[in-house]
């Protein structure tokens, strides 16, 4: 079992749900990356998903697109983020996952990318435009490393497909909670809870829900049906507005020991 899954299971064993925080690398300047990682670690997140800015982020909503545009304007690239992460290695103990679109990885070179990720101590990779069918070459390269290739499943994935995706899943399964892009949502569709429970039944790795989760209530609600959550846009916005307390509270709501809240 790769480190990422092990760490998530450890917190599950303590009776906690996982809370993965997304952040946009280099929003506010690459120099602030370490300080943000340490802040999130301190706040108690289970893992951190570090977004790499891209010129054409098709899976992202408004908040993350804008954060990405700010980071691009700061000259942030996959290469310099990984370099910076390598420099933070001794101080950041929380598991780090890189979220990047495929093209920057191809431009970097897949073997080189994997090698530099290993040097930087990365334990997971999420590539939103790399579905199961196309994942072979990267998967081969990650084989034998401690880096998990974290797959996504969506509301539109049929059961048979979800099963196939879970078979090769590592780290955790990223269950997308909306048909749509990242960004805050007021409410989620009716079918979501049963969908998440079905996914959980089919999956051997922990299932974390993400996309559009922005309030403490939603964090708890999703946690009730899964092994934890991934929170993105809200945290990106909160960092941008310097509302650090909002982030602390969200994380707390996520990793608090079980207390099943009944919402209905």
């Amino acid at each position: 079992m790769k480190t990422l899954e092990k760490r998530i299971r450890e917190s599950m064993a303590e009776g906690r749900k996982a809370f993965v925080s997304y952040m946009m690398a280099g929003d506010g300047g690459l120099a602030t990356l370490k300080e943000k990682l340490l802040f999130l670690q301190e706040a108690g997140v289970t893992a951190i998903e570090i977004g790499i800015p891209f010129s054409d982020p098709v899976a992202d909503g408004e908040a993350i697109q804008q954060a990405g545009a700010r980071a691009l304007a700061e000259g942030v690239t996959l290469r310099n983020v990984l370099g910076e992460l390598e420099r933070c290695k001794g101080e950041v103990a929380v598991p780090l996952v890189v979220m990047t679109y495929l093209n920057p990885v191809l431009a970097f070179g897949v073997p080189q990318f994997v090698e530099v990720c290993q040097r930087a101590g990365i334990v997971g990779v999420i590539i939103p435009d790399l579905p199961l069918e196309e994942s072979g070459p990267l998967r081969d390269e990650l084989d034998g490393t401690d880096i998990a290739l974290i797959p996504l499943v969506s509301l539109t994935s049929p059961d048979e497909r979800i099963k196939r995706i879970t078979e090769s899943a590592e780290g955790f399964l990223y269950a997308v909670t909306v048909n749509g892009i990242t960004g805050e949502r007021n409410e989620f569709g009716e079918e979501l809870h049963s969908h998440l429970q079905r996914v959980k039944q089919m999956s051997d790795v922990p299932v974390l829900a993400g996309f559009g989760i922005s309030t403490q209530t939603q964090v708890k609600e999703m946690g009730n049906h899964t092994d934890g959550v991934i929170v993105g846009s809200t945290i990106v916005e909160a960092f941008h507005q310097n509302e650090l307390d909002r982030i602390r509270k969200l994380v707390q709501a996520g990793v608090e020991k079980f207390e099943i809240v009944n919402l209905h």
Partner: peptide, 26 residues
């Protein structure tokens, strides 16, 4: 494990590099 299900190739070009949400539509 081998995950060889690539479709829509013209030599090495083409493929289906899309978010999972679109896969069933494709």
């Amino acid at each position: 494990m081998a995950v060889e299900m690539r479709k829509g190739r013209y030599g090495k070009f083409g493929g289906q590099y899309v978010p999972e949400t679109l896969m069933s539509a494709l």
